[in-house]
Simulated scan of single mutants.
Amino acid sequence: MKLKLIIALLIFAVLSCKKAEAEASQDSAITMVKLPAKKMISNDESISESPNIEDKVIEQKIIKNGNLRFETDNLETTYDQIKIAVKKGKAFIQNDSEGKDYGTIYRRITVRIPNQNFDSFIKDISTGVTYFDNKEISSEDVTEQYIDIDARLKAKKKLENRYLELLAKATKMSEMLAIEAQLSAIREEIEAKEGQLRYMQNKISLSTITVEFYKTIAEEKGVTISYGAKVWNSFKSGFYTISSFFLGLLEVWPFIILAVALFYFIRKRFKKKNI
């Protein structure tokens, strides 16, 4: 009887173990099924986000410069034409100078113009110009440099925030001073990076165009001067010469008086001997 009871208990135990193993295997199967599903969702999320990152187009940062030089028949007319083009292109004149060179008179203007109006401005001021002595158009892509500086600036600002958190938690004076020294150095770097970005952004948003136009003139040689002008110049030259002579005499008047007195004395003695 006891033997039958022990055998029954053993059979029950074996059946219970098998049932537990079946449930465990079922749970593991469910888990294995759920995990890939969960993994697929996260992958879908990353895939759904990754196109947004890839689709984000990075705007190119281009610095444009222009340098033009040409001859004109009328400096004022050409200047008026440039002023109209400046107003049309929403630009402004940064520098304006004029002067005289060998056989020419010229005017040099530096214009800052929005990047999007660069090409139209070049076209407007080129109207009527048959020949350019010099025409240089350059474009420099600084996108990579701009992104690099911007990324470094953001990293420095994050580092600054971490040091500010450490400063708020610091209790010792030595720790505070050390953190303040680090913050000071970081802030200097941040200001330098911000200055570089501002300078670069200014160059990107406003292109620089230098326009020099000139007019050929006759050289003022002696052949081109009229006869009346020559007479007048000679008269003035003679007057200046006489004036210089009398001024020179005034400077040596004691010697002149002494020479006259000596001449009179010698002449008087010579006459006495002859008598």
Rank of each mutant, 00 (worst) to 15 (best):
F70V: 03
D119Q: 03
K100A: 06
R112L: 08
E136T: 15
Q116C: 02
I53F: 10
G128D: 13
K61F: 01
S97K: 07
T143H: 09
E54Q: 06
N67C: 09
G128C: 14
I62G: 04
S42C: 11
Q94V: 08
E59Y: 13
I105V: 07
R112M: 11
S42F: 11
K135C: 15
F70P: 03
S42L: 12
N95E: 13
K90Y: 11
M40H: 13
K61R: 00
Y79I: 06
K100D: 10
D80I: 08
T110L: 14
D119T: 06
R108Q: 07
L75H: 01
E54G: 01
Q81F: 14
T130P: 05
K83H: 09
E136S: 15
D101R: 13
N67H: 13
N134W: 01
N74H: 01
I47D: 12
I41L: 07
E98I: 02
E49S: 00
Q94A: 09
V142N: 01
N95I: 05
N65V: 14
I105K: 12
A91T: 03
I125S: 02
S48E: 05
G66Y: 08
P114Y: 04
I93D: 01
V142W: 00
T104S: 06
F70G: 04
K88L: 12
A85Q: 07
D101P: 05
E140Q: 10
T130I: 08
R69W: 11
K88D: 13
N52A: 00
E45Y: 04
I82T: 07
K87I: 13
I84H: 09
S48C: 09
V111K: 03
Y102H: 15
D96A: 03
E49C: 02
Y102C: 15
V111I: 10
S126Q: 07
S48W: 11
V129W: 12
D80W: 09
N43W: 10
R108M: 11
M40I: 12
S42G: 09
I93K: 04
E71Y: 09
D44S: 09
E59D: 10
K56I: 02
D73F: 00
P114F: 04
Y106D: 06
S50W: 02
S48T: 03
S42Y: 05
E71T: 11
N115W: 04
I84L: 08
N117T: 03
G89E: 03
Y106Q: 08
E49W: 05
V57Q: 13
I63S: 12
N117H: 02
N52M: 00
Q81H: 10
S138R: 14
K123Y: 02
I82A: 08
T77H: 11
T127H: 15
I125A: 10
M40R: 06
K88S: 11
K135L: 15
T143S: 12
N67E: 09
E144Y: 10
V111A: 03
I63F: 10
Q116K: 13
V129I: 15
D133Q: 15
F92A: 05
Y102Q: 15
E76P: 04
I53M: 08
S120R: 01
R107Y: 02
F92D: 13
F132W: 15
K88T: 11
T130K: 12
I82H: 13
Y106C: 08
I82E: 05
S126T: 06
T78Y: 04
K61Q: 03
T110S: 05
G66D: 07
